[in-house]
């Protein structure tokens, strides 16, 4: 069952990755969704608690109306003292929009600090982060026991065939034609 569909192939590819790695949240206590918007990624989390963090209060209220059990925290993701540390942390829509150039590395360090020991971080970087990827990778490699990365970027154009295109690339592991994004799965916070 596909939890989320979109008409953008590249975005759909990310959702497939999240769906795959959501399994890592099973049996974990706190799931932290940083930049959760309307909590569309809630189905990915199989944690005991789900905590959504976003700066958009309206989006949070919308999310909670759909997922009443979800905990919503109105905060910037760098305000780490306002929300708990997580065992399973997802941050997939924030960096390329808000943390570019010299802000990317410090922001990633703060995100990593919100991952409990042994925890998992799923994080996504976009076009505007591409030049910082070596440093961002180094931050993750220093803090996690295993880091897997998936460069991707099929097409930003909208099409109703997006799920099919993304599924083809996802299951055939066809390499993306032009890398615009990099998704990291970091496991085993040191």
């Amino acid at each position: 069952m596909i939890y989320r569909l979109t008409n953008r192939p590249t975005q759909q590819y990310l959702f497939f990755l999240l769906q795959r790695d959501g399994a890592l949240s099973k049996g974990r206590e706190i799931g932290l969704d940083l930049g959760c918007n309307r909590m569309q990624n809630r189905p990915v989390f199989h944690t005991g608690r789900y905590v959504g963090v976003d700066v958009d209060a309206v989006a949070l209220r919308n999310g909670q109306s759909k997922y009443p059990e979800a905990e919503a925290i109105h905060a910037r993701i760098e305000a780490g003292e306002q929300f708990p540390d997580g065992d399973f942390v997802v941050c997939v829509q924030v960096f390329a929009k808000h943390f570019v150039f010299d802000k990317a590395v410090p922001a990633l360090v703060q995100v990593c600090n919100k991952v409990r020991k042994g925890g998992v971080l799923l994080i996504n970087f976009g076009t505007k982060n591409m030049e910082q990827i070596p440093e961002l990778r180094a931050v993750l490699a220093e803090r996690f026991a295993a880091v897997e990365e998936v460069p991707y970027g099929i097409s930003q154009k909208t099409t109703y065939f997006a799920p099919l295109i993304a599924a083809f690339d996802f299951f055939t592991r066809a390499r993306p034609r032009a890398v615009q994004k990099v998704y990291f799965r970091a496991v085993g916070r040191r």
Binding site: V105, I133, P134, E135, L136, R137, A141, P151
Partner: peptide, 28 residues
């Protein structure tokens, strides 16, 4: 493996950027 190459470069850049104020920040 591209990540292997980038990790070597990234570790150094990270070190230069993360430390106290120094010329690397000016270059950036």
């Amino acid at each position: 493996e591209i990540p292997r190459i980038q990790l070597a470069v990234g570790k150094l850049r990270l070190k230069m950027q993360s430390g106290p104020y120094q010329p690397a920040h000016v270059y950036d």
